[in-house]
Amino acid sequence: MSSQIVDNRGNGEAGWSWPAIHPEGRKYGLAVFGLSLVFAFLAWETLAWPLAFLSLGVLAFFRDPVRVTPQGEDNIVAPADGLVTLIEQVPPPAELVSDDGQGGEGLGEEPVTRVSIFMSVFDVHINRSPMAGTIKRVIYVPGKFLNADLDKASEENERQHILVERADGRRVGFTQIAGLVARRIVPFVKPGDTVAAGQRVGLIRFGSRVDVYLPRDTQPRVVLGQKMVAGETVIAEMSQQPLIEGVSQ
């Protein structure tokens, strides 16, 4: 489905289709399937069939479905599919705090609200920009591979920080964090790129987490345990601080 404008008045078209497979995953799926064919040729069916099913799982992991991003300059949308596991006030990461040395401002040192989205291996792992703007920083930090659901994963795991700035200077930072199984963070953007809200900016292989750092005058519109859809779920509105409550049922 090509990009199109749809609205809540019924304009536009919608229909189900098989999601595309991102090129990053095709080589892995085909490699596993090729190995299954080798074992099938050798009559080792006890290995051939599991590998054939595994190749389908690998392709499913790298699926890249079309998303419809709500339009609105103050919307901050979820950068990742998954479950909201943490919402807390924390200082921004050191890599996003200060001036970049070339006149580019960071998020500052005062605590901000961090929303952590945990992605299981069953979630789509394509990450998207939380808002429209210019990519100001893409900073990769090597580290450990702890369980991404742990709070300390934000400081100790392999991660990549991205800072997006709107035309009016408002900034949102987010961090892609590798987990127990995730072993590579793949960026699609670089500093200076202009992105739209919901645009694909990278992926993390095999289970991980994304932290979003909201502006100081902004509170999330999501609650713990809520399921996020990357590029579609509005997690906050710039300069809005509503109290949102949810019922687990």
Results as ranks from 00 to 15, higher is better:
2 S>I: 09
3 S>W: 08
4 Q>Y: 00
5 I>H: 12
6 V>F: 00
6 V>M: 06
8 N>P: 00
11 N>T: 07
12 G>H: 06
13 E>W: 01
17 S>Q: 13
18 W>V: 15
18 W>A: 13
20 A>P: 00
21 I>E: 05
21 I>A: 10
21 I>K: 05
22 H>L: 11
22 H>P: 00
26 R>C: 01
28 Y>V: 03
28 Y>A: 09
32 V>F: 01
33 F>W: 01
35 L>K: 00
36 S>L: 07
36 S>A: 14
39 F>H: 06
45 E>M: 14
45 E>I: 09
46 T>R: 04
47 L>R: 02
48 A>K: 02
49 W>L: 15
53 F>K: 09
53 F>Y: 13
53 F>A: 15
54 L>I: 12
55 S>C: 01
55 S>R: 09
56 L>P: 01
56 L>C: 11
56 L>Q: 03
59 L>V: 08
60 A>W: 12
60 A>H: 08
64 D>M: 08
66 V>T: 15
68 V>N: 11
68 V>W: 11
71 Q>Y: 07
71 Q>C: 04
71 Q>E: 15
72 G>M: 12
72 G>V: 11
75 N>I: 10
76 I>C: 07
77 V>P: 04
80 A>I: 07
84 V>H: 03
85 T>S: 14
90 V>K: 02
91 P>G: 07
92 P>E: 11
93 P>F: 09
101 G>E: 07
103 G>L: 08
106 G>V: 11
107 L>P: 04
109 E>D: 10
112 V>N: 05
114 R>G: 04
118 F>W: 09
118 F>R: 04
118 F>M: 05
120 S>R: 06
120 S>L: 01
122 F>A: 11
126 I>V: 09
128 R>L: 05
128 R>Y: 00
129 S>Q: 08
130 P>N: 10
131 M>Y: 00
132 A>F: 02
132 A>I: 06
135 I>K: 04
136 K>M: 12
136 K>A: 08
139 I>R: 09
140 Y>Q: 13
141 V>E: 06
145 F>W: 10
146 L>Q: 04
146 L>D: 12
148 A>Y: 03
149 D>H: 04
153 A>T: 03
154 S>A: 14
154 S>I: 08
155 E>R: 06
155 E>N: 08
156 E>H: 02
158 E>P: 01
159 R>M: 07
159 R>S: 08
159 R>N: 12
160 Q>R: 14
161 H>K: 05
162 I>M: 13
162 I>K: 06
162 I>A: 08
163 L>I: 11
164 V>E: 08
164 V>W: 02
165 E>H: 03
174 F>P: 01
174 F>C: 03
178 A>V: 05
178 A>D: 02
178 A>K: 07
181 V>F: 14
181 V>T: 12
186 V>Y: 10
188 F>H: 12
188 F>N: 09
189 V>N: 10
192 G>F: 11
198 G>Q: 09
198 G>A: 14
202 G>K: 11
203 L>E: 14
206 F>Q: 11
207 G>M: 12
213 Y>M: 15
215 P>G: 13
215 P>R: 15
216 R>N: 12
216 R>I: 15
217 D>E: 14
219 Q>V: 10
221 R>P: 00
222 V>R: 04
222 V>H: 06
224 L>G: 14
226 Q>M: 13
228 M>W: 03
229 V>K: 12
233 T>S: 13
234 V>M: 02
235 I>V: 05
247 V>I: 12
248 S>N: 05
248 S>C: 00
249 Q>P: 00
